[in-house]
């Protein structure tokens, strides 16, 4: 049972999801003592806590976010630690390099906090591991049935076709992608024989951290070192769109790689030429499958389309409740940088 000692294993306080029995937070948004971090995206990894625990694969990227001094304890996936009265272990979430689900166990009662996750395969990170638990805390960034991802290989082919078509027109191809995770996933999949690949500094920094851990990415050059752009692919954070940085490329076509590109309106209002539907989050069928495989008694739903997912689960006999976690920007709003 979820509640065998009268106190739930996790509760929400002003700093985030707190485990009193183990005295730690998971992805706190405030400054706390001990923070267990599911992954290094800014809405999950906040600097300012005294100590961090993260998966070993994610240590370097988390370090880049929280600063050089703070102690970070890194643990292998599946390795069990005891913290106060609970046993805790991290398991692959398949979201980005080093992303983890947090499994907490106390006297046979198991809770799992998913962080952000996807079920689709990704050459840059360990695949999502389904875990049985009593309470499953899931994200819901794309918790509507309109979100169903095409096969990633088809999307990569479409990116190649777009890149080649731009080459014919002597245009550069500027591809916007989250600089941590999505950019590297794309760079691990695109064919470098099509043309030269340049990156924005924020992407290149992360590339470096990925490569140091043995992840093979297509060869890239920092855009600051480039001069000829026609025929090139340039990978940059979405925030560069419409800025002076972008103008150096002369004639270019723009595209955004994101799950939000499933909706025409979100692409059109950004004046992007193309949208490639590729996400590091679970789509609707993925969320439902993940929930089902946990066989949880109760599902907590955080950020994204909380209300619809909770209602759907409830209508299908799954106890579920919406949790107002503070994962800013990911609430209901399709702000592209948020979840991606």
């Amino acid at each position: 049972m979820a509640n065998n000692r009268g106190v739930p294993l996790l509760e929400l306080d002003p700093n985030g999801l707190y485990c009193a029995a183990g005295d730690f937070y998971i992805d706190p948004w405030g400054s706390v003592g001990r923070a267990v971090v599911t992954h290094a995206h800014s809405d999950h990894a906040t600097p300012g806590s005294q100590a961090y625990l993260t998966a070993r694969d994610g240590e370097a990227v988390l370090r880049a976010r929280v600063g050089p001094e703070v102690p970070i304890q890194a643990t292998a996936y599946g390795e069990e630690l005891t913290m106060g009265g609970v046993r805790i272990s991290l398991h692959p979430a398949g979201h980005v390099l080093g992303s983890a689900q947090v499994r907490i166990e106390r006297g046979g009662e198991v809770w799992v906090v998913s962080g952000d996750y996807k079920l689709a395969s990704d050459p840059t990170c360990a695949p999502f591991e389904p875990l049985r638990c009593h309470v499953f805390v899931t994200e819901s960034t794309f918790g509507l049935p309109i979100f169903r991802w095409p096969d990633a290989s088809q999307v990569i082919s479409a990116i190649h076709a777009w890149w080649r078509a731009n080459q014919q027109l002597r245009r550069a191809s500027v591809l916007f992608a989250h600089p941590l995770g999505k950019a590297q996933r794309l760079l691990a999949c695109v064919d470098p024989s099509v043309g030269p690949i340049y990156t924005h500094g924020a992407v290149e920094r992360m590339n470096h951290l990925y490569r140091e851990q043995g992840i093979v990415l297509a060869p890239t050059t920092h855009a600051a070192a480039g001069s000829r752009w026609d025929g090139a692919l340039i990978v940059a954070p979405p925030s560069c769109h419409g800025t002076a940085w972008e103008r150096r490329f002369g004639e270019f076509s723009t595209a955004f790689a994101s799950g939000w590109m499933r909706i025409r309106g979100t692409r059109r209002r950004r004046s992007l030429d193309r949208g490639f539907v590729i996400s590091d989050h679970a789509d609707w069928p993925g969320l439902l499958r993940a929930v089902e495989e946990t066989r949880a008694d109760c599902v907590w739903v955080t950020h994204g389309y909380r209300a619809p997912l909770v209602r759907w689960l409830a209508e299908h006999g799954q106890k579920a409740l919406a949790v107002e976690a503070h994962f800013e920007g990911e609430r209901d709003e399709p702000v592209e940088e948020a979840g991606e």
Partner: peptide
């Protein structure tokens, strides 16, 4: 269910597109 179509339409903002996506 109908209510979920409504939620989807709110997100998509285009009737024909919502139906195609579903």
């Amino acid at each position: 269910p109908d209510w979920l179509f409504g939620e989807c339409y709110q997100a998509v903002g285009d009737f024909a597109e919502t139906m195609a996506l579903l």
